[in-house]
């Protein structure tokens, strides 16, 4: 029941999520398909072709030549990061098929079975701590090849596993092969960080460099008056706590009955705005 009421409450967002699947995931994968069409390539487009991690791996390792000719990927990254700065991480909150699929799958799961560390850990520290480790591993992979860390981020690729699962819907044979890394990703991304995670966004928060960089830009952008951001006006707040409950990315917390928004994890999904009966939330320009 809660699942359906959540979908009805914020139907534009869930339609956008469907559009995200249409843009990035095979069999449609319209964005990648358009890129291949422009290049005259007959390759089959799928989610794996718009990797959310490899570009950061290339940048950290100084491997800029790999961007040659990848106009769709460059445009995609520019659009995601630019909108994050100006409007908040809209891609994460509204379009990303990897994060939205686990968020949706976690909704029917009763809360008592979900992991909730939002009051014990600071999500920002955990998130940027992991991003730092990601950059370090990329640098080591490039400049200390004897360590054997090259292409290591491909081994925890949630995108390819999501695409495999979707392929399995259309062709069950696609699910016949699993390697150890793939099985671990299903456990980490889909189960622990997804279905059994409060909000279903565990993998996004702690395993996705694109999400971390997007939120870093949003944190900076939100300090400027001309950018859009979620705001909370406490004058009508009844302290009902509904916003904290529905926030998928653990961005809302209370500090001595004052509601705070953590820009390092807020994905501008606007679930808080839709659930608040007192209209305390708004999404607009201006200083915080």
């Amino acid at each position: 029941m809660k699942f359906w009421s959540a979908l009805k409450r914020h139907k534009w967002r869930y339609l956008a999520i469907i559009a995200g699947f249409a843009l990035f995931v095979y069999p449609s994968a319209l964005l990648i398909r358009a890129g291949y069409f422009l290049q005259g390539s007959t390759a089959m487009p799928d989610l794996h072709k718009t990797c959310f991690r490899m570009p950061f791996d290339w940048i950290a390792s100084g491997n800029f030549a790999t961007f040659d000719g990848r106009f769709v990927l460059i445009g995609f990254l520019g659009a995601v990061l630019g909108t994050s700065f100006l409007f908040g991480p809209l891609f994460c909150g509204w379009l990303c098929p990897v994060g939205s699929s686990t968020e949706l799958l976690s909704k029917p799961m009763p809360n008592k079975f979900k992991i909730n560390l939002s009051r014990k850990l600071n999500p920002s520290a955990l998130r940027y701590g992991f991003l730092g480790a990601f950059v370090l591993v990329s640098v080591l992979a490039a400049f200390a090849p004897s360590l054997g860390l090259a292409s290591i981020c491909c081994r925890y690729c949630a995108s390819s596993q999501l695409q495999n699962l979707v392929n399995g819907i259309f062709s069950p044979g696609a699910l016949s092969y699993w390697h150890s890394g793939g099985i671990m990703v299903i456990g980490g991304w889909l189960l622990i960080g997804g279905v059994f995670w409060q909000g279903g966004r565990g993998w996004c928060l702690y395993g996705c460099p694109l999400g971390a960089v997007s939120n870093g830009l949003h944190t900076i952008g939100s300090k400027l008056g001309f950018t859009y951001k979620v705001k909370h006006d406490g004058s009508n707040c009844t302290q009902c706590g509904k916003c904290e409950q529905v926030c998928p990315s653990w961005a809302i917390y209370r500090n001595e009955d004052v509601v705070k928004i953590n820009r390092s994890t807020c994905t501008a999904c606007l679930e808080c705005l839709k659930v608040c009966d007192s209209n305390c939330y708004s999404y607009k320009r201006g200083k915080v």
Partner: peptide, 11 residues
């Protein structure tokens, strides 16, 4: 994450 990735890569 990186430990299990190294394991996954090595297998």
């Amino acid at each position: 994450i990186f430990g299990s990735s190294v394991y996954a890569k090595n297998t």
